[in-house]
Design a protein around this nucleic acid. Structure first.
Lengths: 170, 170
DNA sequence: TGCACAACCGGACTATAGTCCGATTCTCTG
DNA sequence: CAGAGAATCGGACTATAGTCCGGTTGTGCA
């Protein structure tokens, strides 16, 4: 199923492929598809799983400054940069995982992970929880996708970097 | 039509009312409803129109610090506060106007207005355009709606105020 | 008044996400 | 190996956003 979905997405674009088509291409019924993944967002999450876990692993146990060991003022901009790279690489899929259902972004486990990570890096500042949410808001797939044609990748990247630096220390 | 929509939304909640129901309650066909408003987001925008224009008017020609006359470092937090008030007052409607179609938020005229306003207030700093988008990302209806149950209104308000101050201040 | 034409209207129609239940297959036990 | 029960499957079904076209109503002109 994942193979069929990945192939169709690559061929026709994420938005243009229906769940029916995926089920047909995978040779299963719709019921099976939905039972396995819950909804379209769940399918996207499953497809992103590997890449996402690599990034999470690098953050938890990889070399600094992405991994532990460097000061927060360095880890935060590095994280933002790395996350943006991951996001741009799979923009449509992440977008689908975040927007298929209302509020989906904030419910999936991955968001919790990013939020926790950022909040820890912001520890010591005022209300790290909210500050982390605010920073991640600027990294929402929908947001980045809308800005991309207007500002281009490099301005987004430098803008986000500046934002991360201003949060984590002057 | 707007009356019927407003009544149904108030009675059953924005998410639970279908366009069919609105058309039926208004005594018109679906075609008429869609021809007039384009889609669900357009209907929400039409319902918000008055309240939104009041806020825009107060920003353009009202008394400082929301209106012109005060320094940017004061106007920006005031704007964020006022916008948050407007947002919380009509959270579901704004949310519908921003999420009914993918990318809708960034296409509607209102967003352009808020963005322009914030960018002007941030003029002088680095890349005011991107900084303004980033600040508005934290004011997205979807974002605020997701944070509300977790953080509560007052923490969101103070967090956003701090964010605005850190952007515009020293 | 009556006719031609344009604008407008409304509901049938399509596409798609997601649900549900009868049918099928698999597994465990005697 | 046979049968009962559990797990799984798949496609018909529902709900809803949005499209489209045939009919109707209104308007300008003779």
């Amino acid at each position: 199923m994942l193979d069929a979905a990945a192939r169709l997405f690559a061929e026709h674009g994420v938005a243009a492929v229906s769940m029916d088509q995926i089920a047909a291409a995978a040779g299963v019924g719709k019921g099976t598809l939905f039972r396995r993944f819950g909804d379209k967002a769940g399918l996207a999450v499953a497809l992103l799983d590997t890449r996402e876990q690599e990034l999470q692993e690098a953050i938890l146990h990889g070399p600094p400054p992405l991994g532990p060991g460097a000061p927060s003022s360095e880890r935060l901009p590095t994280f933002v940069d790395a996350y943006l790279g991951y996001l741009l690489e799979h923009l449509d899929l992440v977008r689908m995982s975040e927007t298929a259902a209302p509020g989906a972004r904030y419910r999936i486990g991955a968001y919790r992970f990013w939020h926790r990570h950022v909040a820890i890096l912001l520890d010591g500042g005022p209300d790290p929880d909210h500050a982390a949410h605010a920073l991640l808001a600027a990294l929402a797939a929908e947001h980045v996708a809308a800005l991309l044609p207007e500002l281009g990748e490099s301005r987004i990247r430098s803008g986000l970097r500046r934002l991360a630096e201003s949060h984590s220390g002057p």
